[in-house]
Amino acid sequence: MLRTIFALAKMHLNEHNIYKSNFYLFSFNRLIEVVVYIFVWQAIYYQTGDAGGFTLSQMITYYILVVSINPIVLWGINEDMGHSIRTGRINKELLNPISYFKYYFGMNLGEIAFAVIVGIAVFVVCAIFWGVTLPVSFLNFIIFLVLILLGIPITFFLQMIAGTVGFYSGSIWGIQILRKAVISIFAGVIAPITLFPAWFQALSNYLPFQELIYTPINIWIGEFDMSQIVFVLIKQVIWIVILYIIAKKFFEHAVKKITINGG
């Protein structure tokens, strides 16, 4: 089964290979996104001598890592799923000898592989332009990677939930944007969570989102209290189970209920 999933992932990654320009354009997009953040914080730092409680180089590293990791968290197979619902191709996919979830998980891995390549490229280019601080220790770097990996099933199940909404509305475009906005707000894409109001910080401590971006980056730059790490890891695993159950039940319910455009 694993082999099938990897084969799907490879196939999906190769789709990106056909259009090499995608790689440059997507990386370029990431660079554009980081420019505003960095210049705004630089301006604040030069005016007030403080960048939201971080040093300027920490803040710059924060945003460079945000735009590098962000594709892993936000990209995925939602568009493909929406397309398959709209065109009725989903009929065939449901009859596949591999389950719908595993099929799309494989595709999603391919997408993430592409996101990782883009992320690394963006990171390297940004590092040349602005300079970044490296992870404070090797252990921190490993924990950073573990948290990123734990994020993959979480973002995948979120996509499946968003995708299933498409069965009802016929289009997943709107819900997709909503998914991305929610993750962007709660994961710390906009700014480190510590700069948000206290109630927001309390709330996001229980949600799985800040561990997708904010916590890994804080571990990288050495601003994370390591005694919390066990709690964080357990929390993520619990969320994976919860989201899996919701996604699975919701999907099964939707498949029974829904009539699909004849394909």
Binding site: V40, Q47, T48, G174, A181, L195
Partner: peptide, 25 residues
């Protein structure tokens, strides 16, 4: 309607950023 609402939600991301900026300066 869904699309228009979502577009507004995306903009929330930008507005929050501007708000946070002016908490710091």
């Amino acid at each position: 309607i869904v699309g228009m609402t979502s577009q507004m939600v995306t903009q929330a991301v930008e507005i929050i950023f501007i708000w946070i900026v002016f908490q710091n300066t």
